Simulated assay, not measured.
Amino acid sequence: MQKLNLQSIERVQDISPKSFKENYLKPQKPVVIEKGITDWPAYQKWNLDYMVEQAGEKVVPLYDDRPVRHDEGFNEPHARMKLNEYVDLLKNEPTKYRIFLWNILKEAPSLQNDFKYPNFGIRFLKTLPMLFFGGKDSYTFMHYDIDLANIFHFHFHGEKEVILFDQKQNDYLYKIPHSLIVREDIDFSNPDFEKWPALAKARGFKASLKHGEMLYMPEGYWHYMRYVTPGFSMSLRSIPRKPKNLAKAIYNIFIMRNYDNFMRKWKGQDWINYKNREAKKRTELKLKTT
Results as ranks from 00 to 15, higher is better:
204 G>P: 14
67 P>A: 04
22 E>M: 10
240 P>R: 04
89 L>R: 12
2 Q>L: 08
38 T>Y: 02
227 Y>R: 01
264 R>Q: 14
140 T>L: 13
67 P>I: 06
71 D>W: 08
239 I>L: 05
136 K>P: 05
121 G>V: 08
259 Y>F: 15
121 G>Y: 00
49 D>L: 05
246 L>H: 08
62 L>Y: 01
143 H>E: 09
193 F>T: 08
145 D>T: 01
99 I>Q: 05
173 L>G: 05
15 I>E: 11
124 F>H: 09
207 A>T: 14
282 R>D: 05
124 F>K: 06
94 P>Y: 00
172 Y>I: 04
229 T>E: 04
158 G>F: 12
14 D>S: 04
57 E>N: 03
260 D>A: 11
88 D>I: 01
238 S>P: 02
250 I>D: 08
101 L>S: 06
165 F>E: 01
204 G>W: 14
152 F>E: 04
10 E>D: 07
95 T>E: 01
83 L>E: 01
59 V>F: 04
10 E>F: 08
61 P>L: 02
260 D>I: 03
78 H>N: 13
149 A>Y: 15
115 F>Y: 14
132 F>E: 02
161 E>S: 15
88 D>G: 01
117 Y>F: 12
131 L>T: 06
55 A>F: 00
272 I>H: 12
216 Y>T: 06
80 R>F: 06
1 M>W: 00
98 R>F: 00
161 E>N: 15
270 D>M: 10
54 Q>K: 14
100 F>I: 09
200 A>I: 11
183 R>G: 02
111 L>H: 07
81 M>K: 11
98 R>Y: 00
174 Y>K: 14
40 W>D: 01
9 I>E: 03
234 M>T: 05
270 D>K: 15
46 W>E: 04
141 F>W: 11
47 N>W: 00
123 R>D: 12
247 A>I: 10
94 P>I: 00
129 P>N: 08
19 S>A: 13
235 S>I: 06
201 K>Y: 15
77 P>E: 05
173 L>M: 09
34 E>D: 10
131 L>G: 03
204 G>C: 15
86 Y>N: 09
242 K>V: 07
11 R>I: 11
32 V>S: 10
121 G>S: 07
57 E>L: 02
127 T>M: 07
164 L>M: 12
